[in-house]
């Protein structure tokens, strides 16, 4: 349907762009396109606004702003994501305990409720801000923006953002992080990556945690990795146990390489 004069047919209501345009189409009636006329009947004035706007635009804009801030200050920001109970906080605790004397670390903890995780990080004497999302199931870039203001991180530091434990929703929300790290524990089953593909697709690193439990489980590690690589062939793996410290060294080496000296 032509958006200028409304000629033509369409099925059901059609929403079209209002703009000046030239095109040829035949009219079944004669009229001038340039006449003006008065009319005094009442009518509702309708306007069509052609937007083409990304619904996540506000989140993405603020994420880009966060990213620029991190770049300028040489802060390496990590967005840690996983399902609840994969051991994200224990993994983070172990990393902080082992590396906090070498590099400055800052932590943002995201949970729906409680300050429990922030208290665990605070016990390690690492600056931490807890974001409680209430009913919200993920962190958004404005929460990071406000949390970072409170943290006032130093240059040349690491910012570890522990997202809300949820393998679905946080995938869609860019926080401005440099790398997204997905944690999966071997108790979760090999096919988790294809059950929740969006998170594995959007991540750069995959931490496979609870490796100390391997003798007690029937888990095919190769199958787990193959599924993850089907979703995202670029994923890089680290097999660790946050509890025993097994396998943490390659992860620390990788982290050390990320921060520009």
């Amino acid at each position: 349907m032509c958006g200028t004069c409304g000629c033509g047919t369409g099925d059901g209501p059609t929403i079209v762009k209002i703009e000046n345009h030239d095109h040829d189409h035949s009219h079944g009636h004669d009229h001038s396109h340039t006449h003006t006329h008065d009319h005094d009947h009442s009518h509702t004035h309708k306007t069509v606004i052609e937007l083409e706007q990304d619904i996540l635009q506000n989140n993405n804009l603020l994420a880009a702003r966060n990213r620029g801030f991190f770049d300028a200050k040489n802060i390496f920001a990590i967005n840690l994501v996983s399902s609840p109970g994969s051991g994200k906080t224990s993994f983070l605790e172990r990393t902080l305990a082992d590396l906090k004397d070498q590099y400055p670390f800052y932590v943002i903890e995201g949970d729906q409720q409680t300050q429990n995780d922030a208290n665990r990080i605070h016990a390690l004497q690492v600056p931490v801000v807890q974001v409680n999302t209430g009913k919200g199931c993920h962190l958004e870039s404005d929460m990071i923006y406000n949390a970072v203001k409170q943290l006032a991180p130093k240059d040349h530091s690491f910012l570890m953002i522990e997202n809300v434990g949820n393998l679905v929703c946080p995938a869609m929300f860019d926080l401005g992080e440099n790398k997204r790290v997905v944690v999966i524990s071997i108790t979760e089953g090999e096919d988790k990556p294809i059950k929740y593909p969006d998170m594995f697709l959007s991540s750069d690193i995959c931490i496979i945690n609870k490796m100390d439990l391997q003798p007690y489980l029937k888990i095919d590690m190769q199958k787990l990795k193959d599924y993850a690589l089907q979703v995202n062939p670029h994923l890089q793996f680290f097999e660790v146990s946050a509890t025993t410290g097994e396998g943490m060294t390659p992860w620390y080496d990788w982290l050390s390489q990320q921060i520009k000296k």
Binding site: T44, K46, T47, V48, I49, L51, E52, Q53, I55
Partner: peptide, 9 residues
């Protein structure tokens, strides 16, 4: 994931 258009009055 976009809003293409709005018809307002």
């Amino acid at each position: 994931l976009k809003i293409k258009a709005l018809e307002v009055s």
